[in-house]
Design a protein around this nucleic acid. Structure first.
Lengths: 131, 131
DNA sequence: TTCAAATGTGCAAGAGTTTGAATATATAGA
DNA sequence: TCTATATATTCAAACTCTTGCACATTTGAA
């Protein structure tokens, strides 16, 4: 098989993994700090099962790695540059003309939150679980 | 809708458009020069209908623009940086080296359990005594 | 120690939705 | 007309969410 087809197929798989809003949000949240399924469930406001399934997709493609600590499993970005690379891609999105203004301000907002760089993390940090 | 969800959804759409080997190949070929459906049909070795279908997807998301010349329609990358950005993503594809990550996460897990000293654990409770 | 409950996580099966390939048909220009 | 593209239809496959249950770990009690 020609190398072009091989690389295109691999890249297509990667893009397929990233072609889901929740998976993108998970990656961007993991850029800030390592999080457990329970943490992500609260942050994203979805069921633990949905979080687990999306994490399974990311895990199966080795974009995240899991680290068990007690009864929690903390997830961690294998390559933190992935989150930055994804954000670089916002230059190429083209919303409908009617929504351009909303999109532009939304992009500005995420840039400040999911901004250019995150500080390195030695290990999972404690995020107050609840209450 | 919160801006994070808006941008994540738009990015997911973009990734969805790119999650097909032929569409990636088309983009990379268009980086070199503008091409017609017939050109791409020969280069990719597929039917003109398949080429047209994939181009329609790229067109609907404004990643390519069409320019008619005589009876041919030449396609052109709207933002040439797109092809470069896609190629930057090859750093994140993971050819089957799954054993390495499993081992790394296993080592991390062991460190937390058999580790030298009981650091504050990111669980709901931390346990002082160790069995 | 041994046992059972509580919590966090993963997995399987279902329905509903989306996507891709192939064929056929339609449109536009020479 | 003929040629180059585009679109529509069809069916099969893949995706996602929800529900329910199973497994692993910790805690507390016997």
């Amino acid at each position: 098989m020609p190398y072009r087809a091989v690389v295109s197929a691999e890249m297509a798989k990667l893009f397929g993994v990233l072609s889901h809003p929740l998976r993108i949000r998970i990656i961007e949240e993991l850029k800030r700090e390592d999080l457990s399924v329970g943490n992500l469930k609260d942050i994203l406001g979805i069921t633990h099962s949905a979080v687990s399934q999306q994490l399974a997709v990311l895990r199966s493609h080795h974009l995240v790695v899991e680290m068990r600590q007690g009864r929690n499993v903390f997830y961690h970005l294998r390559n933190p540059k992935l989150a930055s690379w994804i954000m670089d891609g916002v230059s190429f999105i083209s919303p409908d003309a009617s929504e351009i203004e909303k999109m532009m301000s939304a992009i500005q907002s995420v840039k400040t939150v999911w901004g250019p760089e995150a500080k390195p993390q030695p290990g999972p940090k404690k995020r107050t679980p609840k209450a």
